[in-house]
Design a protein around this nucleic acid. Structure first.
Lengths: 346, 346
DNA sequence: CTGTTAGCGCGTTCAG
DNA sequence: CTGAACGCGCTAACAG
């Protein structure tokens, strides 16, 4: 008595049932017109009737293509990473690929391990938010013919196809918006200078001040990781100053949570007492009351482009030189910023 | 001139370099003591030196195990799903499995397609938040020897290993907490009755009222999808009543965003004018000011147990009868609930 | 247009 | 303890 475990219907079974050879069956089901239309139709019929499903592993062993794409992110709490994961998964599935989810916690060691595992699985490609410490390994992947697309973060040590937000311009625009509202002392809570995003957002802020003819005051800048605690601490430090800022530019949505709490605890009303602008959108900021104005870095667009670039190369387009792409940021005005020392407009 | 593409180091190369046969190499590297210690050590040395990495596809074809686990969730925005994804990915990776991320948008058709694809990839197992419409397919997977663990949601049509939150008890406790604070008219914003979670949270609410000797007033209940818009609408409807509720129990964190906005727009102060309790924790609720009290459904614990159950069966434990597990909910008191008509305690 | 043959890289008998 | 041979399920040469 044979127990029927695992889907036992193999191409061979289909071929046998249709009284043709395995290769004919393979070609017929492959869809390429390498077989007569009638036999092709018959094969398809037999296949569906038997419930035949090709074995991806066996096919991959032969074709050297697993139809698997590694998606490597630091976490899923950050809205940009989360949207990236959602969009990439959907787009890649539509293109016939499956996504292997890998979370690194921004830890180079875990990233290195992850890359190795992905190679073992013979992933066809990689979409990664790199830590920046494993450029060599990523380059090795490329050399072995596995396309890599970096997104949101860049690995500076090596030239790879990279899709980034226009952080310098976004931070510039956000700061200018606050300047145009008449603010002169603008506090900045930003990422660490070791990260590209930290440096670039800071540079946009500085350039806006400079173009407005204002000096740069380093004591108005509070840098740290992307956590609410950092926002809270920065908010407290900035508000304890005698000449406290009239506006706060918070360069990530996690820190913004801490800032909002810090302000509420001191009874500071947004935007009457202080204007707040955030870099990166998230549902909780949009639904906040007052709704928080943001510079939207466009995570969906970032993801779309990264997927496009990857698919292009998966389809065999010549590698060409690795390019860097930038997705423009967009100011979304809501209710958290207002002109300095003027009544709210009617 | 041979271009060295794809990692060409195969078991055969290792064997050749060590001057043994492939099978010896295989056994040595497999670690089972089926070979002399010296040759085993030598093989390991040669393997690492050559940078040999076993081909997962080929191994899977032979062993009928892909080391791939499908993780199927509705989305990644909901905190429970997000935490599930993070925890499952981490735990499964530590156990030597990779996670294929699949997002269904709570759509049975996408779910069906996803399940089929996962079978094609020869996934070794499945962790899924089912829509409830594909029980038959999941049961078929089980029958074919692929273990399935349902989590957070249940498929009622079929008996599968399932890990759920203790929603009835959690909702009961949350409601009782509000009752103990003296509230009598408690508005409930809850999921649709078509969903298990919607029904169960409603039932807990009703039972608490009943045990307190209070009648059930259907007009105090607003059911809908898990979106901020639903919370906003429910909040408005409930507050427009002449005898408006003194407390609101919101049965998911997405709707809570809408509720908070609705209250802010009317100038209703939490908790002085109205107490608010939320089912499901999320960072934005914890950092909110005032911080929102919640009934924590324990997504990390749910994920851990689901992974445990799955791993157990992947390791070959007898299937046994499919069991349902419940993870106890936990009331986290913060600042959004206060006794009715009494001053805040010092 | 179709059948035959030969691997893809690995684990696993079965002899030695 | 080790080596030779076979097959997992599929695609891709090469013949016919």
């Amino acid at each position: 008595m044979l127990a029927v475990m695992h889907n036992p219907v193999t191409l061979r079974d289909v071929a046998r049932a249709a009284k043709v050879s395995v290769s004919t069956a393979s070609r017929a089901l492959a869809g390429a017109g390498l077989t007569s239309k009638v036999t092709a139709a018959r094969l398809r019929a037999v296949a569906t009737e038997l419930g035949y499903r090709p074995n991806t592993l066996a096919r991959g062993l032969k074709t050297r293509s697993s139809r698997l794409i590694g998606l490597v992110v630091h976490n899923l709490e950050n809205a940009s990473f989360r949207v990236l994961a959602e969009v990439a998964q959907q787009r890649l599935r539509a293109a016939g690929y499956q996504v292997i989810l890998c979370i690194t916690a921004d830890d180079p060691e875990q990233e290195a391990e992850t890359i190795a595992t992905l190679m073992d699985q013979r992933a066809d490609g990689l979409i990664i938010c790199p830590t920046g410490q494993n450029g060599a390994r990523l380059a090795a992947l490329e050399r072995n013919g596995t396309p890599v697309a970096c997104v949101i973060r860049r690995d500076e040590a090596v030239e790879l196809e990279t899709v980034l937000a226009a952080d310098p311009e976004g931070a510039f625009e956000g700061t200018r918006h606050l300047l145009e509202l008449g603010h002169r002392r603008i506090g900045l809570i930003v990422g660490r200078p070791e990260t590209t995003s930290g440096r670039e957002r800071l540079s946009g802020y500085r350039r806006a001040l400079q173009e407005a003819g204002l000096g740069f005051d380093a004591s108005l800048v509070h840098a740290g990781r992307y956590h609410p605690e950092v926002g809270l601490a920065g908010c407290q430090a900035l508000l304890d100053r005698p000449d406290r800022p009239t506006a706060l530019f918070v360069a990530n949505h996690e820190a913004t949570l801490g800032v909002l709490r810090g302000l509420a605890e001191r009874g500071i009303i947004i935007p009457d007492d202080l204007s707040v602008l955030c870099y990166e959108d998230s549902p909780s900021l949009a639904w906040q009351r007052p709704a928080i104005s943001v510079v939207d870095n466009g995570p969906a667009a970032l993801a779309e482009l990264a997927v496009d670039r990857l698919l292009r190369r998966l389809r065999g387009s010549p590698a060409g030189a690795a390019r860097e792409y930038r997705i423009g940021a967009r100011l979304i005005q809501r209710q958290s910023c207002r002109p300095l020392s003027l009544p709210v407009e009617a």
